[in-house]
Amino acid sequence: MNLLDRRVRGFRLVDLVLASLLVALVLGTYLAKTMAGRERAEIARTERQIGEERARIRLLQAEVAHLEDPARLERLSVAYLGLGPVSIKRDLEPRDLTDIARTAANTGKLPGEGMPVKPHEALSFDPTGRAPEPAPEAPAQ
């Protein structure tokens, strides 16, 4: 008997197989689309988070650049720590240490010892002509 002619409980086998295939395809398509939709939503959420994080990183980078503005740092370091740029006269290379030791042994004094240190002055005006930015308050002792 031909396979296409076989019947199961009055239904032809081929009809049952095709009907099952049809249901499976419908179900499969539905499931695939549902799962893809869920994945899409997840991807979208993640991408949104990435976008937000990127925007935040850029904001923080700009904030860091502002906080590290050399003019600002100089103003603060002079105001609160009395620090200023190191004079090149006090800048030595490791290879100079032998000479320094020799000088110290001969004269009993280190080079530059007793050299007057001129206090570093902060810029006394705003070059843009605006009112100067108020300095932040010193941390509590």
């Binding site: 689309k33 893809a36 899409r40 979208a44 949104r48 976008g51």
Partner: peptide, 22 residues
């Protein structure tokens, strides 16, 4: 099936669900 696969994998349609592009 071909259309669904194409829509799911090879087009941008629907990618913006709930998401404003940056």
């Amino acid at each position: 099936a071909i259309g669904a696969t194409n829509a799911a994998l090879f087009t941008d349609a629907g990618k913006g669900d709930g998401y404003a592009p940056p």
